Simulated assay, not measured.
Amino acid sequence: MEVEQYLAELGITLPNVSKPVASYVPAVCGGKLLFVSGQLCTVSGELKYKGKVGRNVSLEDAYEAAKASTINSLAVIKKVLGSLDRVKRIVKVVGFVNSDPNFTEQHKVINGASDLLVKIFGDKGHHARSAVGVTALPFDASVEVELVVEIE
């Protein structure tokens, strides 16, 4: 429970995992890898930071949206594994940013996810990453994050 104790010290509470809104499951294990489905930026069950980054969502709010999406991903990991202490390494982060056509700082948005994972997991949190601008996300979310995690 070390990771979860550290989250509590940081003031981070993992939410309940939402039921999927389409035909998928929150996560799938494949050998020693856990693939976490894309998580949106919900806080207390409410979608936050709706809209296009660079138009009606600021870079700063989008960074926070990436953090919220990552916290939701951690909640899925805990539900599937029973403990975040079973995370051996964060392997990959894929971040999707609902972007205005002229917005080109997706990498700074997804730093919200990356910075949080490194803060929580230290060296085990360093990962490969993609930060992709898209024309739309479900429910007009500004950010969606998916993770690939090596587990023990």
Rank of each mutant, 00 (worst) to 15 (best):
R129Y: 14
A66H: 01
S130D: 11
S44Q: 14
A131C: 15
G51V: 02
V148S: 09
P138S: 05
A131N: 13
L47D: 02
L40V: 05
V80S: 07
A66R: 04
G125T: 06
G125W: 00
K50F: 05
S37L: 13
S142W: 08
A68I: 12
V93F: 01
K79M: 07
D100T: 08
E146C: 09
L84D: 00
K108H: 09
R55Y: 11
F121C: 09
A128I: 12
Y49C: 01
K119Q: 11
K124A: 12
N72L: 00
K79Q: 06
Q39T: 04
K124P: 14
H126M: 15
G133A: 15
N102Q: 10
I90D: 04
L74K: 01
Q106S: 15
L147H: 06
Q106W: 15
I110G: 00
S73F: 04
V109S: 06
L81H: 07
V94E: 14
V118L: 06
V93N: 09
D140N: 12
R129D: 15
G54P: 02
D123V: 10
K88Y: 06
G82D: 02
T135H: 05
Y49V: 07
V80L: 11
S58R: 07
E144H: 05
N56C: 12
K88C: 05
P138R: 04
F139G: 05
G95E: 02
D61E: 06
A75W: 03
K108M: 07
V143F: 00
A131G: 08
D100C: 12
D85C: 10
E64C: 03
